[in-house]
Simulated scan of single mutants.
Amino acid sequence: MVFGDQNAGIGKCGGLNEALVLIHAARMSGLRVMVGSMIGSSMAMRPAFIAGQFADLVDLDAPLLLGSDTSPSASYDGGFIQFRHDSLIDAGALSDG
């Protein structure tokens, strides 16, 4: 059996670094790449949002299936997913206290 695509599931392949290695290897082999996720919050999807920038297909709508999501949450509009850039900064890490 021959496959033409590679699914890089962040949780299943060992995290973001491993997913990026897998994506690179798939690209070098001429495969298309899909990044997907298991059920989880917007915050849990952050690594997949990064890996998804290098994918042909992205399926990261899991936070939409939750009754409530984390804050800040991703926004989903017209097939696009995004976080506001300032929401990604940990304000506590920037403070002196």
Rank of each mutant, 00 (worst) to 15 (best):
D69H: 07
I10Y: 03
P72C: 12
S75Y: 10
M38F: 04
S41E: 04
G9A: 11
V35L: 10
G11Y: 09
A44P: 03
L66G: 05
P47H: 01
G78A: 14
L66R: 12
K12R: 15
G9C: 15
I39P: 00
S68T: 15
A44R: 11
S42I: 04
L57H: 13
G30F: 07
L94G: 06
G92Q: 14
A91F: 05
A26E: 05
L64E: 05
V58T: 09
P63R: 04
P63I: 04
M1N: 08
G36R: 00
G36D: 05
I50S: 00
E18P: 02
L60C: 06
V33K: 01
M45H: 08
K12A: 15
V21E: 15
D77A: 07
G52N: 06
G14E: 09
L66E: 08
G15L: 04
F83L: 11
G9M: 09
Y76V: 07
A8L: 03
T70W: 00
I10E: 00
G30I: 08
L94A: 11
S42E: 02
D56A: 06
L64N: 06
A25S: 10
P72R: 05
G97T: 14
T70Y: 00
F83Q: 07
S68Y: 11
L94N: 02
I81R: 10
G15T: 02
A26T: 00
L31D: 01
G36Y: 01
R27G: 06
G79S: 10
S87F: 07
V35T: 07
R46S: 03
G30C: 07
D77F: 12
P47D: 02
L31I: 04
S41Y: 08
P63F: 01
Y76S: 02
G30S: 04
H24Y: 11
L94Y: 06
D86C: 13
P63M: 01
N17H: 14
S87N: 12
D90Y: 05
G14H: 11
R46K: 14
V2W: 12
M45S: 05
M1D: 12
D61I: 05
G30L: 09
L16I: 10
D69P: 07
R32W: 01
T70C: 12
D56Q: 00
T70G: 08
M28T: 12
A26V: 01
G97L: 15
R84Y: 10
V33R: 03
G79L: 06
D69V: 03
A8N: 01
G97Q: 13
N17Q: 11
A25C: 13
L94M: 15
G11Q: 10
R27F: 01
F83I: 13
S41K: 07
G9V: 09
I89L: 14
